[in-house]
Design a protein around this nucleic acid. Structure first.
Lengths: 193, 193
DNA sequence: TAAAGCATAGGACGATCGTCCTATTCGGTC
DNA sequence: GACCGAATAGGACGATCGTCCTATGCTTTA
């Protein structure tokens, strides 16, 4: 059931919500993208809230998988945090075109005061708590959450400005600074021991 | 003609675009906020593009005034840049509720691929070039634009995350870090002489 | 083959959108 | 007091929105 209609709808909605925004994407858009009628769409999802909730759940699951994979692949917390920073490089093109999928959805749902706002924030919280854990493993028990929030904010700012100016060299320069900042964090933690 | 209907419309639209977003704000919303009929509204602004363009022009003018005032009031570039950073403190409440007015509009119009996207970006560019000038005055001729962009991105990131989590202590902590970063910039430039 | 249920198509519905048109009112001028 | 342009009100318009209903296939099961 990988290519079931329901899965196709979720995939198309996920993509359109990212590229056009949630409010700007209509049932007709999604149905057209999948190649089905609006009536059939309604058979699978009764309300727009429901499809949004499902898309967010998928993003949560995908994010958890990605973070788990980094946890399994990378040898230590420093390399794991570097994996996070390097999303900005790997998704450079998409980010310049449409911004960060996490940040833009949170910002839009906040402005709409939408019911699913907290659910969208949870995707960001997934990164927040994961980063928190990595900084704790790095020896920053006391300020682990502050460091995680700092890194989140830096990434979001880079994505937003890169999206506005469509500037890829800016992303590269900022990522390098972030990696330097991370090295300084490591040095500070080993120094404190 | 300070309180003319046209001025009232622009003020109401500016506020509603900020709080609800551009796309989510209808002519009816603005007309109701001003207390006039939709027909009268159309007498002053023929299209939604036109009202958006006017609102952005007002924001550009207001931003220029603010930057000019900082230029006149503050004694040197460091204190001027500090004024920029402190917007995050002064507008803490509004930013937590609705995000940064500059960044959220740029992000929304980018996602809509709206005609006025470049105009919205210009507000951000106003800060960018102003900050650029301050960093040049600080002795950072070579990397003035990179520093300006860095500061822009940091501010935008702080605003976005603060908006998502409605966390004011996070804003305070990050602003303090920004001011430290600025001091380090000053030290580096005086050291290089 | 008949029955049953899932999946799909197509359109109707009320509401709201941006836009536009037409009266009507108001304020100042000969 | 007649006149005229600016300002305002109210509603009509086509389109699109989310939602919902119904009829028609398609597939499986007895």
């Amino acid at each position: 059931m990988q290519n079931s209609t329901r899965e196709q709808i979720i995939t198309a909605a996920d993509d359109l919500f990212y590229r056009q925004g949630f409010e700007q994407t209509s049932f007709a858009n999604i149905a057209e993208a999948v190649g089905i009628s609006r009536g059939n769409f309604y058979y699978h999802f009764k309300t727009k809230d429901e499809i949004l909730k499902t898309v967010i759940q998928r993003r949560l699951a995908n994010t958890r998988d990605m973070l788990d994979q980094w946890e399994a692949e990378s040898s230590g917390p420093v390399e794991r945090i570097r994996s996070f920073v390097r999303i900005l490089i790997g998704n450079r093109g998409k980010i310049m075109r449409h911004g960060c999928p996490v940040g833009t959805l949170c910002a839009e749902l906040a402005k709409l005061e939408h019911l699913q706002r907290d659910a969208a924030n949870e995707v960001m919280t997934l990164f927040r708590t994961w980063l928190h854990r990595q900084f704790v493993a790095l020896g920053h028990e006391a300020d682990a959450d502050a460091l995680a929030m700092h890194l989140l904010a830096r990434s979001q700012g880079i994505a937003l400005v890169a999206n506005a100016y469509q500037d890829s060299s800016f992303v590269d320069a900022e990522v390098e600074q972030l990696l330097d900042w991370l090295d300084a964090c490591v040095a500070q933690s080993t120094h404190a021991e």
